[in-house]
Simulated scan of single mutants.
Amino acid sequence: MMAPRNIAPIGYSGGSAPRSGPSGTLGADNRLTTYANTTRRRVDTILELFFADKARRADSDRLPPDIVGALHAHIFAGGSRTRATLCALGWQSNGGQERLPGAVLRAAASLELHHAGVVAYNDLIENQEPRRGIVPLRRMMEFRYVSESLGKQSAGLLGLLTLAWSDELFHGARLTARQRCAAIPVLAEMRADVIYGQLLALTGMDCDLGDVDLALRIVRYKTVGYRYEHPLQLGASLAGANPDIRRTLSAYARPLGEASQLCADLRSVFGNPLTREQPRPEDLQRSRTTVLFNIAAAVADADQRAELLTLTANPDLDATGAQRCREIIETTGAAAETVRMVAQRRALALQALEATPIPMPAAEMLRVLARRVTANIPSSCCLGRGTS
Rank of each mutant, 00 (worst) to 15 (best):
residue 339 V to G: 06
residue 347 A to I: 06
residue 108 A to M: 03
residue 95 G to S: 05
residue 112 E to D: 03
residue 193 D to K: 11
residue 141 M to P: 00
residue 53 D to N: 12
residue 125 I to F: 09
residue 108 A to G: 04
residue 204 G to Y: 11
residue 36 A to S: 14
residue 293 F to G: 07
residue 359 P to E: 14
residue 263 C to Y: 10
residue 206 D to Y: 15
residue 149 S to E: 15
residue 259 A to S: 09
residue 282 E to G: 01
residue 192 A to P: 00
residue 156 G to M: 15
residue 68 V to M: 09
residue 356 T to W: 01
residue 297 A to S: 11
residue 275 T to C: 03
residue 343 A to E: 14
residue 234 L to Q: 04
residue 381 C to R: 05
residue 374 T to I: 02
residue 178 R to A: 03
residue 357 P to V: 13
residue 152 K to C: 14
residue 33 T to Q: 13
residue 358 I to F: 01
residue 161 L to G: 05
residue 202 L to S: 15
residue 15 G to E: 04
residue 285 Q to R: 15
residue 269 V to A: 06
residue 168 E to L: 11
residue 79 G to Y: 01
residue 312 T to M: 15
residue 158 L to N: 07
residue 302 A to I: 06
residue 268 S to K: 03
residue 177 A to V: 13
residue 203 T to E: 14
residue 367 R to K: 11
residue 121 Y to H: 08
residue 218 I to P: 02
residue 120 A to W: 00
residue 219 V to Y: 04
residue 184 I to L: 09
residue 91 W to I: 02
residue 67 I to F: 11
residue 324 R to Y: 10
residue 366 L to Q: 01
residue 330 E to L: 14
residue 54 K to V: 11
residue 154 S to W: 07
residue 182 A to F: 00
residue 164 A to Q: 09
residue 113 L to S: 04
residue 380 S to H: 02
residue 299 V to L: 02
residue 59 D to T: 14
residue 85 T to Y: 00
residue 105 L to H: 05
residue 130 P to M: 05
residue 159 G to K: 03
residue 309 L to D: 12
residue 174 R to Q: 13
residue 48 E to M: 10
residue 248 T to S: 14
residue 85 T to R: 00
residue 30 N to F: 09
residue 138 R to W: 03
residue 306 A to H: 10
residue 283 D to Q: 11
residue 379 S to V: 08
residue 267 R to M: 15
residue 299 V to A: 08
residue 152 K to Q: 13
residue 251 A to N: 05
residue 307 E to D: 10
residue 281 P to N: 08
residue 384 G to D: 13
residue 320 T to C: 08
residue 274 L to Y: 07
residue 329 I to F: 03
residue 322 A to W: 05
residue 298 A to K: 10
residue 97 Q to E: 13
residue 249 L to D: 00
residue 337 E to Q: 12
residue 261 Q to T: 10
residue 325 C to N: 10
residue 368 V to Q: 06
residue 35 Y to N: 01
residue 138 R to I: 01
residue 362 A to N: 09
residue 157 L to R: 14
residue 41 R to C: 02
residue 222 K to C: 01
residue 100 L to G: 06
residue 231 P to N: 11
residue 265 D to C: 07
residue 304 Q to H: 15
residue 150 L to N: 13
residue 386 G to I: 06
residue 325 C to E: 12
residue 270 F to Q: 02
residue 137 L to I: 12
residue 319 A to S: 10
residue 293 F to N: 04
residue 304 Q to G: 12
residue 341 M to F: 02
residue 260 S to A: 13
residue 149 S to Q: 15
residue 62 R to N: 14
residue 96 G to Y: 06
residue 122 N to K: 06
residue 286 R to S: 02
residue 289 T to E: 11
